[in-house]
Structures are given as structure tokens and as C-alpha cells.
């Protein structure tokens, strides 16, 4: 496999642009009894999930419940303390797996390359992997920027962007990869309502037209309940519930009801209970 890839990269003729959904198989993710500890602190306990190919799977949960850590394990950036993750049966930490399925992660903080312009941030993946000619890459990058209304920022540096713009560049950079598995860490947290809706539409379109599997970590209840096939709720590193949006709405667990519909109660404020 390695040899094969290298040879391919050395051909002077650029690789044909990979059209997603045609050359690549839909990707399923299996998380088996996954646990993660940092030193003495246990962050994730015994998580088991099976995400079907082409599914939109949302993970919700309070801040600090381990959502970002779970995404890092699925993306193969960190090794779990126990258990395992498999992408169509393959280890996500293996470069071959990444090469075969193209796994993109939209980082919570963007993780844009600070020394590169917005254009170069997006063009890096296709350039490094020799996907298409320069003109084709330019088209691909400009299309992604247009979808996220970023045409004005093409030549800017990440340090010159607002928080929401950074997030959108991060999403555009993931789209340019034309991945089969897209992991979003709070894609709409810094965006205005219209942009958030656009992101929801993008995720749904990728699923419908290209069978892209999406795992979305989000606090955005509307987004989660409209586009998801299933929603998992993570609390204190444990899987508290797993159901489709309709099932989640009917859920009567007090913790979940309070999490999904927190009412501002001035007569009996939460912070007083917490301090007590």
C-alpha cells in the first residue's frame, strides 16, 4: 500500500480529482468500550457506539463532558486508554486508513495554519496529495470559500479573521478535502443563526448527495434535532442516552429534559443550588 501511494505521488501526471461517493466507499465508525484517562483523571468511560455509513450522528453534552476528547480518539489523534475505534474495520491512527477514506476534523478552535493565507490553508491538502491540476485545485478552493461566503478573505491571514470567520475557514478547509467521514467540533458555536442554518444544510447535503458520514459535536439543539439521524448525550464521560431526535424529545430523564430545555428561573436560580 505504502509503495503504491508513493509511486502515485511521483507520477508527473497529477492524480485525477477524487470525486467523493464514487471512488470512495461510505464509511462506518465503530467505537468499542472506549475509555480515556489523562493521568489520574478519567475523561471517558466505556463508550460504545456504532455509526452507520452515511449517517449524521450528533453528540451533545455539557461543557467538559469529553466530547472533544471523544472526537480526537475517533480521528486517531490520540490513543484510547482502553477499547478501540475502527473506521470500516481499520485503525484511524494508521495513515493508510486516512489515505483511503479521507477523514476531516473541524477543530473547535479552528486550528488554521497561522503562517499560511486562507487560500493556502484550503489548497494545502489537494496540493500535498496531488489531487488535480493547479486550476482544478483553485476551482475547488474557490467553490468551498464561496459556499461559506468567504470570498473576501481569500488572501487574508488567519490572524486577521474574526472568530466566526476562522470557524468557517476551518469548515471550508474540511470540505476541500472531500472527505468520506467528517467530524465537526461545534461547527456553529461562533456563527450567526443564518450561517448556522447554512452549515446544517451543508451537512445534510453532503449526506444526501455523497453519502458522507458526519459526526457533529454541538450545543445547537435546533441543528441537532433537525438534521441528525441519531443523537447521543454524553455526561461526565459516560453515554447517557442514544436515540433518534423524536425519541430524544420524548425522553423523560430529568437530566436530559433540563439539558435540552433549560429554563431561566429567577425565583430559584441554579447558581444558588450549586453554591449551596
Amino acid at each position: 500500500m505504502k509503495k503504491h501511494i508513493q509511486k502515485e505521488r511521483f507520477q508527473s501526471e497529477p492524480r485525477q480529482p477524487a470525486t467523493i461517493g464514487q471512488t470512495r466507499t461510505p464509511v462506518g465508525v465503530e467505537v468499542r468500550n472506549l475509555g480515556k484517562k489523562y493521568g489520574a483523571q478519567t475523561v471517558l468511560t466505556d463508550i460504545s457506539l456504532k455509526i452507520e455509513p452515511g449517517e449524521i450522528f450528533t453528540i451533545m453534552g455539557p461543557s467538559g463532558s469529553g466530547k472533544s476528547v471523544l472526537l480526537r480518539q475517533i480521528a486517531g489523534l490520540e490513543a484510547p486508554t482502553s477499547g478501540a475505534v475502527a473506521i470500516n474495520g481499520h485503525n484511524p491512527a494508521d495513515p493508510d486508513t486516512r489515505d483511503r477514506f479521507a477523514i476531516a476534523l473541524v477543530f473547535q478552535a479552528g486550528a488554521l495554519f497561522n503562517s499560511l493565507s486562507v487560500y493556502d490553508n484550503l489548497a494545502l491538502y489537494p496540493l500535498e496529495h496531488r489531487i488535480g491540476t493547479r486550476a482544478q485545485i483553485r476551482d475547488r478552493v474557490m467553490r468551498a470559500l464561496k459556499i461559506l461566503s468567504l470570498e473576501g478573505a481569500v488572501n487574508k491571514n488567519p490572524s486577521e479573521l474574526s472568530g466566526g470567520m476562522k470557524k468557517r475557514v476551518a469548515i471550508a478547509r474540511a470540505l476541500v478535502m472531500e472527505p468520506q467521514l467528517l467530524l465537526y467540533d461545534e461547527p456553529t458555536s461562533e456563527l450567526d443563526p443564518v450561517m448556522s442554518a447554512t452549515i446544517g444544510e451543508i451537512i445534510a447535503t453532503l449526506k444526501q448527495e455523497y453519502q458522507v458520514t458526519s459526526i457533529v459535536v454541538s450545543h445547537d439543539r435546533d441543528l441537532a434535532l433537525t438534521i441528525s439521524n441519531r443523537v447521543a448525550i454524553l455526561m461526565r464521560g459516560k453515554l447517557l442516552s442514544l436515540s433518534d431526535p423524536a425519541g430524544l424529545r420524548r425522553d423523560t430523564t430529568p437530566e436530559i429534559i433540563d439539558f435540552l430545555n433549560p429554563k431561566i428561573d429567577l425565583r430559584n436560580p441554579r447558581y444558588k443550588n450549586m453554591a449551596a
Binding site: 480526537r72 480521528a75 489523534l77 495513515p95 486516512r98 489515505d99 477523514i103 476531516a104 476534523l105 477543530f107 478552535a109 486550528a111 488554521l112 495554519f113 497561522n114 503562517s115 494545502l124 491538502y125 500535498e128 496529495h129 478535502m177
Partner: peptide, 21 residues
């Protein structure tokens, strides 16, 4: 300084997910 800040601000992680060693 450059590589450490790339590491801390997850740019290196982004490279890894893009399969760019």
C-alpha cells in the same frame, strides 16, 4: 517557538488528520 505553538494550537493535529506527516 514556531513548532511548539503549532503543536499547542493544534496545527500539527490538523496536519496529521490531513495525512501530511
Amino acid at each position: 517557538a514556531e513548532l511548539a505553538s503549532m503543536r499547542v494550537y493544534q496545527e500539527v493535529d490538523a496536519l496529521v488528520t490531513m495525512n501530511i506527516p
